[in-house]
Design a protein around this nucleic acid. Structure first.
Lengths: 211, 211
DNA sequence: TCCAGATGAATGAACGCTCATTCATAGTTT
DNA sequence: AAACTATGAATGAGCGTTCATTCATCTGGA
């Protein structure tokens, strides 16, 4: 099944494509998407201005490609790692870990994914209907499975729980991006999961707390 | 103390300022911040192009003003409503309710606050250091107070809990904004709080879940 | 009451600059 | 010698901002 093996040799064309994508990440992260000039992306990729348009349909399509390319790799990895797991709780842990690891290791990419790709409603909808939707759907499946098996509460709406989990992780990454002295992003994995699993109110007070 | 009473009569200048701010919200929400033209904001405010610059220092400052103005009103209301409350749990409920109500009632404003103001790292830092920081600090205080009083778990980092709560609410609003048929935003208030308070894992499984 | 002069808020046409994109040309491979 | 790929200078539309000018309102002297 050639094409699905991510470790195979790249064709020259694929190689240059990747090189441009990487350059775009660096430049978009450094200057911001709107301030960034295509000329600078070309320069960073060591390629002529016009060449960009032989690989991408324009600036916006380049940004979209950065996003989808990154998420595709991430989703593949996620699926692969989850194959060996049955426990939804363990799956959720892995998902959060991979999410934090992937972004924690590449700050420029994180910046582009978290901030630059969210510049308009129109663009965000585009993302939601693409790879991001696939990712959220994966998360939703885990939550649903956990509820079916009884390891997650059944009395919270599945979609809402998905939303809370994603929102929490997403905001954590945002704060890490905005921090003046960002530490290791993955250090929060444990505490974050603890809070998501157990909530903020001790069990003995649960009756009066909600509602 | 004239000037702090939000219900007093507006001077002509204040009135026109508000009119421009409202127009900016509508136009930024409709076209997106970057696509929006100052000319169109002026048109929507029923004012000449140049007039905008008698009230604001430029396009970016106008966007910032929209944000700060909205948050200032929100924070004032929040402080006022919280004065009568002692219980941190109740305070948190009020905070989430007001947050969802304020945005749920004004979709254009929500759009601008959630999406258009987050177009760059630089701008987001500006927000964080201003009114948004004040808001987060308020939330952080509530969490801390709850932990001191024992109504919130002490074994979760205060800042992280603040982050999770804000992230969850924020993402909920985002999904509402992106939805094709958005319902009433406030309907999620109860379930959201329940999940934040109690977590996703039933109490009896807490031992093995975290970590 | 009337008017001359002063004030500054408001106007909107025009400016000037910034890029995303194009395409005629050049190079490279088969 | 075709076919494919790359180049980068030139283009021109788009738009934030400016500023010379207008005009409604106010002031105070007669």
């Amino acid at each position: 099944m050639p094409g699905s093996d991510s470790a195979r040799k790249l064709t020259p064309r694929e190689f240059k494509r990747k090189k441009i994508l990487r350059a775009a990440i660096e430049v978009f992260a450094r200057d911001g998407y709107f301030s960034a000039r295509m000329t600078d992306v070309a320069k960073a990729a060591d390629v002529a201005d016009g060449t960009l348009y032989l690989y991408f349909d324009g600036k916006e399509h380049l940004l979209l490609s950065v996003f989808d390319d990154a998420l595709e790799r991430f989703i593949d990895q996620l699926k692969q790692e989850m194959e060996r797991l049955d426990d939804p709780l363990a799956k959720l842990k892995v998902m959060v870990r991979l999410h934090l690891e992937a972004l924690g290791r590449d700050r420029a990419l994180a910046h582009v994914l978290q901030i630059e790709t969210r510049h308009s409603r129109k663009f965000m909808r585009l993302l939601s209907r693409g790879k991001l939707g696939e990712y959220l759907s994966l998360l939703n499946d885990i939550v649903k499975e956990g509820q079916d098996l009884g390891s997650f509460r059944r009395d919270v709406n599945t979609g809402l729980a998905t939303n809370v989990i994603f929102g929490a992780v997403d905001e954590l990454v945002n704060r890490w991006l905005l921090a003046d002295e960002p530490g290791d992003l993955t250090q929060y994995q444990g505490p974050l999961l603890k809070m998501l699993f157990q909530g903020i109110v001790p069990c003995e007070f649960h009756e009066g707390a909600a509602g």
